[in-house]
Design a protein around this nucleic acid. Structure first.
Lengths: 333, 333
DNA sequence: CTGTTAGCGCGTTCAG
DNA sequence: CTGAACGCGCTAACAG
């Protein structure tokens, strides 16, 4: 491991001068530069980032905290986040909290230990208070951690309303609704509006709450099976991609026809919701835009360039598939 | 940001002593310790990891390079890798190479710049030669980069044989086979054996090669549509989860029945292959074991504890679904 | 048992 | 235009 000192020695100059050519800072005579560049390539010198980090007190790493990478929404989000960060010269360190508050806290602590310059968090096992009282370089996905911490999220309220409108126009009368997100998460808005709108129009909503923080596949199957057994005569289902698709799978297996006997609307609209047959109607979050907004925001916080709004809410989009009959949306409800 | 010096000053001792209590190294009198601990908590002191990193010349970070996080196999792999690394005190920095050799090279360079202590790579845009001539702290997933770099992979040859055996016992005569992995990847073994075995028994194999490095969803649909159009009378399909499921989707849409008219076997066997209806028969890789093996190996390389085998090949497992008729496997082909 | 000191490798003054 | 010297925060060796 050649160091800057070796380069200086080999080129017969001082370390300061070498530093200057590496960073392109300050003036340096053309032939001195030549000599140094030669020495650098001879020694295959690469600057030690660790020393730079110490000096600058920054690492260029952003921690990305999510409940579980093996979940289509979060893996897509993480992917897009990494791309967005990379474009701006940052790298992503990831943490699956997998429901463990210790892991979440552990990664959060890296902020204080200067291991990461900032954090984007979509995890929610910790109480929000643990997030405040820190350097303010945290951006929350879909969660309100109070006025200190900017949040980025989707317009879930509108998403819930859209889903309700389609159920209504498809003449559903008894609709299963699987919920199961952490208590203080913005995504809950969709549940509230969805139920409210349907009930207002005399539609029965059959609720099933999944334990939150369960992101493993089996729990989706369990929830779906329970719902199917509990409400065998339901004519509609609204849930996140995975529980909804599990439900559809079991319903098809039980001989129900989609959309004739059962209307299915899923939330998130990831790839998995297109690949199943029939393709389902979905309320889609704009994952890429969410990720870019998070990345941009946390970097603005770090570099203190542009101010970051406290709430940034992005639109959701309806994708009509074959699991409901096509309807015209006019937002008149 | 309080530093160790502040703590020493506040406690009225030298920095060395503070360092000793923080690291639990060497002797320190009980009451001196008390004073120091008090000062630490008063100042809310946390050691600056950057300085430690510089001293130790290590970061505790492992780079995880994969083609695309938004792919069920790789997101599951990355998830398990992060968990396995964390358990051993390491953190994961991720890189989607998204088919760009520049990005791959960029992250690879972090090894030289000491930003990461080691690398696990499942990416394959770079020529293998770029991987050699480096510190030997690289582990390759499913790729042979020569004798210098240990590899971890699945027994794809057996996987291909299993798939062929099922096709044969299901009396298939014309089987579509979608391939499309990078040239030097071990996963290709399955393709070779699959075709070989079928042809030996007089079954026609209808090949379709996808451009490798395409991990976006659309390319799966395109490949599936092309195959369906080109070989409308095929009675079997073998491909990775996603292209196979796209194919099944389109076939169902076109009125084919599964498994009556079409047998489907997918490779990888991720969650997505269970959620579609009917559940498909799949050759499953043991993602968790793969990840743990990679994590353990790269750490052994770094810490130079146990020797790391050059090739570690893990078993694949058959999961029979409803997309083929159940068969008894006896490995007699 | 404890304080002092010399690096770790680099970037930046600040005189020359 | 350039070299020497200092400091980033911490650890380990070494006297006391």
């Amino acid at each position: 491991m050649a160091s800057i000192k070796d380069v200086a020695q080999k080129a017969g100059v001082g370390v300061g001068t070498v530093s200057r050519v590496i960073n392109g800072s300050g003036y340096v005579a053309a032939d001195t530069r030549k000599k140094i560049e030669q020495a650098i390539s001879d020694l295959e010198y690469t600057p030690n980032e660790l020393a730079r980090n110490l000096f600058r007190n920054r690492t260029g790493i952003i921690g990305v905290l999510i409940p579980d990478l093996d979940h289509p929404f979060f893996s897509a989000f993480t992917r897009e986040t990494e791309v967005a960060l990379y474009k701006r010269g940052y790298k992503a360190m990831i943490c699956n909290t997998v429901g463990s508050s210790n892991r979440e806290r552990d990664y959060l602590n890296m902020l204080d230990r200067n291991m990461v310059d900032g954090i984007i968090t979509g995890a929610h096992t910790l109480h929000w208070k643990e997030y405040v009282n820190r350097k303010r370089t945290i951006v929350a996905l879909d969660q309100d951690f109070g006025p200190e911490i900017p949040m980025v999220g989707s317009d879930h309220a509108y998403g819930g309303k859209l889903a309700a409108e389609i159920m209504l126009k498809n003449n559903c009368k008894r609709v299963v609704h699987i919920t199961g997100i952490a208590p203080n998460v913005a995504a809950n808005d969709r549940h509230i509006i969805f139920e409210e709108t349907l009930k207002k129009h005399g539609v029965e909503v059959l609720d099933l709450t999944m334990e939150w923080n369960l992101f493993d596949h089996q729990s989706y199957w369990d929830a779906a099976a329970e719902a199917l057994e509990k409400y065998p005569d339901a004519d509609g289902i609204f849930a996140a991609d995975q529980p909804a698709l599990c439900y559809m799978h079991l319903a098809l297996k039980a001989g129900k026809r989609v959309p004739e006997d059962l209307k299915v609307i899923t939330y998130d609209g990831m790839d998995v919701s297109r690949i199943c047959y029939p393709e389902v109607t979905a309320i889609c979050q704009n994952v890429k835009f969410l990720a870019e907004t998070c990345a941009k925001s946390v970097i603005n916080l770090i570099e203190d360039k542009e101010p970051v709004p406290h709430r940034q809410i992005l639109s959701v989009e309806l994708r009509q598939g074959q699991s409901t009959y096509p309807v015209e949306i006019n937002d008149e409800l």
